[in-house]
Amino acid sequence: MTLSPAEIDALLLSLKIAAVAVAGALPFAIACASLLTFGRFPGRFLIDAIVHLPLILPPVVMGYLLLISFGTRAPIGAWLLHSFDIRLVFSWTGAALASAIVSFPFQVRAIRIALENIDPGLHQAAETLGAGPIDRFINLTLPLALPGIIAGAITAFSASLGEFGAIITFVSNIPGQTRTLPLAIYTAIQTPGGELAAARLAMLSIGLALCGLIISEMMMRGIRRKLTGQVRP
């Protein structure tokens, strides 16, 4: 399967946007999942609902909310532009922000499940031995939650590769700047005679998704083997 230069640009841009989106959101996802798992405070359920809003809202709505918040005439967007010369709208960094927000709940859910499955007795034993909260979190909680962290990151990465509505609404469909794989497929479908290109890009997207799932499973099996000495069926 031979890709054209424009299709290669769309592929590389998609990979870059997904990688930046996942890497940028991961620390916040870990913090948010920890807060929702271990925190006990009023309004926790409201925060939980807000975090998971991108799962149920149409992506176009998320893109619109980003546009009215980070557009060059919007309060936050204008402040970023005039104070730091940062323009998110119509740029690949804006596409990364949109992908990060849309895929954020996938990371939080996976990490939260991993945290909830940690035996509380381990934390109590570590506390008895004199380990402080930060020490317990770094040396006990994070290693035990690593399978969930990796699963969430890879799932979010795959979701970012397939994001369409929020990106095209917030940063448009600009070749070489914001045209990711899904947008390239959309463009090919709208172009006369572009059916073969659309099919080629669709097969590429399917292949990337399958590779992500396989890598995720292999990495989680390896981590489980190190943590438990056995691989779950």
Score class of each variant (00 low, 15 high):
2 T>R: 09
2 T>Q: 09
5 P>R: 07
6 A>C: 06
8 I>F: 11
10 A>L: 04
12 L>T: 02
12 L>W: 10
14 S>N: 04
15 L>T: 05
15 L>H: 03
16 K>M: 14
17 I>M: 13
18 A>L: 03
19 A>I: 08
22 V>P: 00
25 A>M: 01
25 A>D: 00
27 P>F: 14
28 F>V: 09
29 A>V: 12
33 A>V: 02
42 P>D: 05
44 R>L: 15
45 F>N: 05
52 H>W: 05
53 L>V: 12
54 P>I: 11
56 I>A: 10
59 P>W: 07
64 Y>A: 07
65 L>T: 05
66 L>E: 00
66 L>A: 07
66 L>F: 06
67 L>M: 11
72 T>F: 15
73 R>K: 15
73 R>L: 03
75 P>K: 08
77 G>D: 05
78 A>T: 02
79 W>Q: 08
80 L>K: 00
81 L>T: 13
82 H>G: 04
85 D>V: 07
86 I>P: 06
89 V>Q: 11
92 W>A: 10
92 W>E: 12
93 T>F: 14
96 A>F: 04
100 A>W: 08
101 I>A: 04
105 P>E: 04
108 V>G: 01
112 R>Q: 14
112 R>K: 13
114 A>G: 07
114 A>E: 03
114 A>D: 15
116 E>D: 12
117 N>L: 13
118 I>K: 05
118 I>F: 04
121 G>A: 10
121 G>K: 12
122 L>E: 03
123 H>E: 15
125 A>K: 09
127 E>D: 14
129 L>P: 06
133 P>A: 13
134 I>R: 13
136 R>C: 01
137 F>W: 15
140 L>D: 00
143 P>E: 05
144 L>R: 01
145 A>T: 02
146 L>Q: 07
148 G>H: 05
150 I>H: 00
150 I>D: 02
151 A>M: 01
152 G>N: 01
153 A>S: 08
153 A>P: 02
154 I>V: 03
159 A>K: 10
160 S>P: 04
163 E>F: 03
170 F>P: 03
171 V>H: 00
172 S>P: 08
173 N>G: 01
176 G>R: 09
177 Q>A: 13
178 T>N: 06
178 T>K: 09
179 R>L: 08
181 L>R: 08
181 L>S: 09
187 T>A: 10
188 A>K: 01
192 P>C: 12
192 P>H: 08
193 G>D: 14
193 G>E: 11
195 E>S: 09
198 A>F: 14
201 L>A: 02
203 M>P: 01
206 I>K: 06
206 I>D: 09
209 A>I: 07
219 M>V: 14
220 M>L: 06
223 I>K: 05
228 T>N: 09
230 Q>F: 11
230 Q>C: 14
231 V>I: 10
232 R>N: 14
232 R>A: 15
233 P>R: 13
